[in-house]
Amino acid sequence: MLALSRSLPPLAYALYSLALALILGLGTAYWSVRGTYPLGRTQTQGWTAFPKLGARDVDPYARAILARTGDIPLGLGEGIALLAEADSEGRALDAACRYRISGITPVARFWTLTLYGPDGRPVRTELERSGFTSAEVVRDAEGHFEIALARLPQAGNWLQTPAQGRLRAILRLYDTPVAGSLSWLDPGSLPTVRREGCP
């Protein structure tokens, strides 16, 4: 073995270096843009946002992911999207369970709350409603709202969930001053996602 490798010319080492560089470099580049945005995550009260996506100084990884997915982020001057993939205790949102999204939202001219299936499309159910806007939702006397996510009809604001699959909720605040300062929000100024029960 040693006798064999002693006869290797310098070119073989150079080719080995280049092959290693290409495989490792392209492989890690591909791997790092496959999933969600790796940098610039702001997590607050159970919701995740990527405020830099809507700014000029978006990081190169997010830029590459945007180029791959074709997504068009909200500009910070337009609003901000907040994503919830888990309930208040950190369990992934499952269409088979019942949830209650309740509370208030930060100051915004409008907001929308939309449920998405695992494919990133708004949920399609018999109710033909995948979300609420701030104008549609019914609130109590203090301005709090409650949205029930369930398969079967519920009193009040009800969003029907599909029969099965993972769920994602996106709360979009349009025309809001908090887009750049999400981490300084007061506790309780974002709605909570509570699990009510699972079959």
Binding site: L20, A21, L24, G25, L26, Y61, A64, R68
Partner: peptide, 18 residues
């Protein structure tokens, strides 16, 4: 050398992707 070049390839690929 391969590792150092891989870093450059990685950065170049990410920047060129858009």
């Amino acid at each position: 050398c391969g590792l150092a070049l891989a870093g450059m390839v990685h950065i170049g690929a990410i920047l060129a992707m858009p």
